[in-house]
Design a protein around this nucleic acid. Structure first.
Lengths: 365, 365
DNA sequence: TACCTGATCGGTAGCGCTATCAAAGGGTAG
DNA sequence: CTACCCTTTGATAGCGCTACCGATCAGGTA
């Protein structure tokens, strides 16, 4: 025997006296065998009692459960995962842990909890290389599914995913974007167009746009396009100087962007902002400058984050159904995972779930 | 042979013709053996090249790495975890995915990424029973460490953790709270006292308090106590009717709490609020009612969340160093995990790391 | 009585890695 | 030239569980 079985054997295997000291407090975790012995059954029966209780006779099941209770046995899911090649874990890769992605995560964990799945988290910081590294790590862990944000994947990422054949779902897609397989989407472009349409209906004509970097970020791309759609539809001229890109997605970035924008185009009477967080910053900056919202400047946001509802003035916004998106993504992942086996991204009919969009009118416009 | 080795054997093991159909697209993941064969070494050498490259001779290492590259091999960390009884995963259990906990998570993932550890996430919704279920699940997964929020554990949770002997760290503790082993804390009680002290120095005398439920939540408990300390120190009377408990931790809950509070105590000239999110809601509600902040009502928050810095008026707050707390917690966990072996909570000298506190003065007071 | 069926349970052989020991080679001190 | 040590590599035996096949047995059928 090469590896020492550090188990208190039923007598006989006592350590030499010195061992008592060296091995302080090393009770070693219980194994199924221990439970089985106590219940007077085989390990397989214990395994079945845990995995498929319906296949075990009532009296036996009761005995096993009593033994489980008595020992406080915690199954080793690592061994289980190796033996069954199913880990009961799904991974999520998000750009940042912040609004509006936190509700998506929340939705996912809520659904997964009900199915006894766990969620491993990866944060990509909007960097395709980091996403690639995360995908690699998660595939190495043999997760049963991966949820990621649509768009901005490296070629290597796509190749690995295709090769691994793991259930996959992309979130926060726009219906028009190309995806790998399954996707949950919200029509972001239409949403932005509707926001502009609404501002036009309110009599605004000098409508600016503030958004995050569109690099590797298809959400920002879609929203910008929707804004341009809205201008075109209303016959308003496109004005590059009326658009400003933020540095990051914090409120302060929104505030700074408005400051720069107003320097160039002081006459703006409305701004379409590509995120509620940025929009909140825009409103704060407007107030700081003595501009009244919406009287002097109308503002629309995106996502329907908590702050949009709560702030004063409350924020007109496009509901991205962030939490529902998480729930839906988790459900789709579980569905694929439960079918078991490889998922062939090439052959598989892609499933898309579109959650629809809704402009929510509030005080800021 | 019982279990079918579904591998393209080097000839010989061909499936019967019908198999071709049944087994569409089942390339099966590569194993170390495949890499080893290609590199002309044993599997152990591949394992070493991956885990401990320094112990492999340069030319061999190069050959193995080439083979690794060529095959695109992804190590199976499940098998690795079983064999080595180290999973390279740590778990975090947080009450909610929201401010101010999101930065803590962010800090943790940042540190863990550098150490090739992954983070599994659990959300307890402030419910000790859910926390218990999560701890059970994580222990079953044999995570290498668990970070949880201090306080509010069930007896069973504590017992399991003690029994499992897994590295542990509690976050968001107050230095005075009792913890299981290691903890990262911030003096929340002192922080709240300082906030009140500051309001008093600004000439405020009718100072109210708005906080979340103190049930299972030692952070809220500490902050409330600090507020009372502050009043006592200034010789101000304790007034139960000047305190209001919120329903949840959203901005709207803060707004609603202020509304109730002002109904009972319309003459308040300051409110000490136990979270920036709630405090933002309080400020919004004040504005909605035509009260100027800080002229008519001074407001202090807690946590130094993004909104405290960004909003107008910006929020005086107590910095909880949320992200640093996450970083520190992850570092302490890794330190314990790398030492390997069981952690005996009873015998182990507890380590506490106190990050200090800081009142940040801004416009709202 | 012989045979079949379905429910229940156990034995065994892995799952894909790593820990441990053993062996082989090369250098070097005596 | 021998003894010894260090470096490098390989062979082997698990890690703790589950998939698979078989065995057993009660009950029903022909």
């Amino acid at each position: 025997m090469v590896r020492l079985r550090r188990r208190r054997g039923a007598l006989g295997e006592m350590m030499p006296a010195s061992g008592m000291d060296a091995l302080v407090a090393a009770p070693a975790a219980l194994r199924m065998e221990d439970v089985a012995r106590l219940a007077g059954v085989s390990v397989m029966t214990v395994s079945r009692a845990l995995r498929a209780p319906a296949t075990v006779a009532q009296p036996t099941l009761a005995r096993v459960r009593a033994a489980l209770q008595e020992t406080g046995y915690l199954p080793n899911l690592v061994a289980s995962g190796l033996a069954s090649s199913r880990t009961q874990v799904v991974a999520a890769i998000i750009p940042l842990i912040s609004q509006p992605f936190a509700p998506t995560l929340q939705g996912m964990t809520d659904v997964l909890r009900g199915a006894a799945y766990q969620l491993v988290l990866g944060v990509s910081h909007y960097d395709p290389r980091q996403e690639e590294a995360l995908v690699r790590a998660f595939l190495s862990r043999r997760v049963d599914g991966i949820a990621l944000f649509a768009g901005g994947h490296t070629a290597a990422t796509a190749a690995m995913l295709r090769q691994a054949g793991v259930p996959l779902v992309e979130m926060w897609a726009d219906p028009a974007t190309e995806v790998l397989v399954d996707a949950v989407s919200v029509p972001q472009r239409l949403g932005a167009r509707d926001a502009v349409r609404h501002l036009v209906a309110r009599g605004r004509r000098r409508i600016g746009f503030i958004g995050g970097s569109t690099l590797h970020n298809i959400r920002q791309q879609s929203r910008l396009r929707g804004y341009l759609d809205g201008l075109a539809e209303a016959g308003l001229p496109e004005d590059v100087a009326a658009r400003e890109e933020t540095d990051g997605f914090l409120m302060e970035a929104g505030a700074a962007a408005l400051a720069r924008l107003l320097e160039r185009r002081p006459g703006l009477d409305a701004v379409c902002v590509s995120s509620d967080i940025l929009a909140a910053g825009v409103v704060f900056e407007a107030h700081r400058r003595g501009l009244a919202v919406p009287r002097d400047l109308a503002v629309t946001g995106f996502d329907d984050a908590e702050i949009a509802r709560a702030m004063f003035p409350s924020l007109t916004t496009v509901d991205m159904k962030a939490e529902a998106m998480g729930r839906q993504a988790a459900a789709m992942l579980l569905d694929r995972a439960r079918q078991g086996g490889r998922v062939d991204l090439a052959a598989m009919p892609a499933r898309r779930c579109d959650l629809g969009h809704a402009l929510i009118l509030r005080e800021s416009s």
